[in-house]
Each structure stands twice: as structure tokens, then as C-alpha cells.
Design a protein around this nucleic acid. Structure first.
Lengths: 145, 145
DNA sequence: CTAGGTGCAAATCATTTGCCGGGGC
DNA sequence: GCCCCGGCAAATGATTTGCACCTAG
């Protein structure tokens, strides 16, 4: 990947200094920081950077595949009347959530119990995909991811 | 479970009309509605209900185990410098996120591909637990869950 | 010169909370 | 009467966006 034009899309994006620093800071730690924490880290090197820029660039970097977003696939909570443990699949295009036809991963959770020093309370598995209704409809993804 | 006192904790909580209606509406559908959607659904039966009440009762019902919260285990996004597919464990007490020592569930994703009519893009597996540092420290959970 | 980038502040969106009156037991 | 509750509106907290300037190509 060229330093200037690292995306193979047609657009020309620059790896600016701010972007570079944010990327380095996120890669440097293994604490999976929040946007605010990244802001604090970056601010030590770039005191005049703004929180908005950090958000913009974290979004940019994760869209580019250089870093990963963890957690909230959507920022809106959803509720489920079924209380048994089961999994979901979320359409990245329309944000719809349905149940996933997969049996419970009890063995995986059991493995975690022995490999980890955490007290394991449970786990959550979610698939991401495009639902039949959305497939073909859109070229780019909806914001609701 | 008695209709009035359905929690085995010492406290006495009532299954009020609003609570009952919210519970029924969430159980009635399989669309995993957002709080707003629940509000709209419930409003058809209780026009004067407020959004705040819906939020309060969804929280109450999920804490009671009568319904389930899906998605955002925390409402704050986190970022990861590692882009390879890997899993995480989140401490429900302090909100910290670490990598989970579990190999990739390629076979599960492959199974989903054949069982589902979604175009599968990927999956996310997250364990919930209490980290060694937090264990013993607290009796009740931090808000950061 | 044109477009992407940034800093800054204001706006948005989901969610939470304080207040206060009302009803169940 | 006491305490849980619900309606309402204001507060909060994370994230996004509009705007004006700036800078690389």
C-alpha cells in the first residue's frame, strides 16, 4: 500500500499526520480504547487536535480496514422477548435483527472457562450479513450499521 | 412466580399495567424492536405512556430476566488496532475489553452460510465475565455494562 | 485552484434522571 | 401513610455535523 494512496478505491485520500498518529496510538496499545481514550492518548502528541477529528479518523480508519470497531454494531439497543440463550444475525444494510439458526456454543464457553482467568458469565454471538430484502437494493451501506 | 411479587429478591415490585403491556408487546413480536419501536407499539394501547417509562420498564424487565437486551453491552464504542478476526471478553464490572483465547469459529460461520438466506459477511463473538481485578471488589455491578 | 482535512462549536440522538403528583396495600 | 410508579421535561453523554479556514498536489 502506498503511503499516500492506500485505498484501492478511486478516491485519493491522504495519510495525514493526525491520521497517522491516531493509527499509531491505537495500534500501540492492547487495551481496546474508547474514542475518548484515544483522544487523550493522541492529545499528548498533538495537543491541538479536536475530539471531532479523532472521531472522524477512527471512523475513516475502521472503514479502511486499518483498525477495527469493537462492540455496538449499532448504537441503538434492541430487546428480545425470548430469554433462552440464542444468537442473532443483523443486516448491515437495514439494521434488522433476526434469530440465527445455530445451536448454543456451550463447548466454546466451557473452553473459555478453563482458558481464562475471568469468571465467565455468558457469551454473545452475532452474525453480520445482508438480508434477502436488502440484497441488490443498495450499492453502499446504510448508516445503521 | 406470583403475579404481584415475581422477583425472589426481598423487594416488592408490582407488575403494573404499563409493565405488563410493554412485556406483552415485546414478547408478541419477533422483530427485536428498539426502545422507540416498543414505545410506538405500546402507545397504541396506552396513548399517554411516556418514552421514559418505556425505557425504565425495559430496563426493569431485562434486569428481572423477563426479556433480553440485545446488542451494545456498553454504549461506548471501542477500537482495536488488530484487524485479524479475533474475539473479545468484556468485564461487566469495569467495562474493560481483552482478547479471548479462542480460535476462529470458521465452521460455525460456514454452517450459517448454508442455513441462512442472508449473505454472511462475518460474525462477532464476545464473552461476558468478571475480570480478576474486579472479582471480590464489588457486590453489585458497575453501570458500565 | 480544487478537494480533502481540521479545529471548533453547535446540533443530534439515544438514554437517563429529577420532580411531583397518584394509587396500591 | 409509605413507597413504588408513571408522566413530563430537562439533563446527560456519546457521536455527528456545519462552517470557515488551511494546505497539499
Amino acid at each position: 500500500m502506498s503511503p499516500q494512496n492506500f485505498l484501492d478505491s478511486g478516491q485519493k485520500y491522504r495519510m495525514t499526520h493526525q491520521r497517522q498518529v491516531i493509527l499509531e496510538e491505537v495500534q500501540k496499545v492492547n487495551t481496546h480504547p474508547t474514542a475518548d481514550e484515544v483522544y487523550e492518548m493522541v492529545r499528548k502528541r498533538l495537543p491541538r487536535i479536536s475530539l471531532g477529528t479523532v472521531y472522524r479518523n477512527l471512523e475513516f480508519l475502521s472503514t479502511s480496514g486499518l483498525i477495527q470497531k469493537i462492540g455496538p454494531p449499532s448504537n441503538q439497543m434492541r430487546f428480545d422477548g425470548k430469554t433462552e440463550n440464542h444468537y442473532h444475525i443483523r443486516c448491515v444494510s437495514c439494521g434488522k435483527v433476526e434469530d440465527a439458526p445455530v445451536e448454543s456454543l456451550d463447548n466454546v464457553e466451557r473452553a473459555m472457562r478453563s482458558h481464562s482467568d475471568y469468571s465467565i458469565l455468558g457469551h454473545r454471538l452475532e452474525f453480520l450479513g445482508i438480508c434477502p430484502a436488502c440484497r441488490g437494493k443498495e450499492t453502499s451501506f446504510h448508516k445503521n450499521v
